[in-house]
Design a protein around this nucleic acid. Sequence first.
DNA 1: GCAAACGTAACCTTATGAGTTACACTTCAA
DNA 2: TTGAAGTGTAACTCATAAGGTTACGTTTGC
Lengths: 98, 98
Amino acid sequence: MTMQNPAHPGEILRELVMNPLQLSVTEVSEHLGVSRKTLSKILNGRGSITPEMALRLEMAFEKPSADHWLKLQLAHDLWQTRQTKSKLSVEPFTEIYS
Amino acid sequence: MTMQNPAHPGEILRELVMNPLQLSVTEVSEHLGVSRKTLSKILNGRGSITPEMALRLEMAFEKPSADHWLKLQLAHDLWQTRQTKSKLSVEPFTEIYS
DNA sequence: GCAAACGTAACCTTATGAGTTACACTTCAA
DNA sequence: TTGAAGTGTAACTCATAAGGTTACGTTTGC
């Protein structure tokens, strides 16, 4: 309803942050203080932006706030969950009172 | 900077949803299709609103969207992380280019 | 006093983030 | 053309945490 398949945060990180500054994965991972694998997973959509990682990104790049990084992750997670768990079968509570 | 100690989502769930409708923990947990423990933990601030739980709440109460529930959780988590991990020591990347 | 509701401890399963190490592939420069 | 650097990723380990079931003690209301 609200949106179609929001890009995962790693895509934004690569395209809007690392590419413009011409930063390598190795370079950034070392700077952030995380393993190369951790960054790589995020960049390729197989890792999540955790609160701590959001903080690290905020400290390193200032620009997108930690809050913003996490909202990007949230949008992606919620989208995935809506696709997967569409048959949760929870009845509206309000219906009982209407 | 942005806010002081955001209430955990369970507080909102209890005060703004369950109390007004006079719903019990048992009642709601059964309706949502989760265990009483899972709901109780969230209500008492020792459990998190996961994407799936956010969807269940949205389906049951309609009013606060899943997205909103998750943003409440996010604000709480980020706040906690800022308190705990304040000494992450990540240098600004931009500084290098300024 | 009794029954219902509640918080929670104990225990188990599953999932995931993060790290290290290692390997294969690609690109680029000496 | 050979070698170094960067990259993606598999394998393994550790820690955390969500969710479930069961059970127990406490609180509350009829």
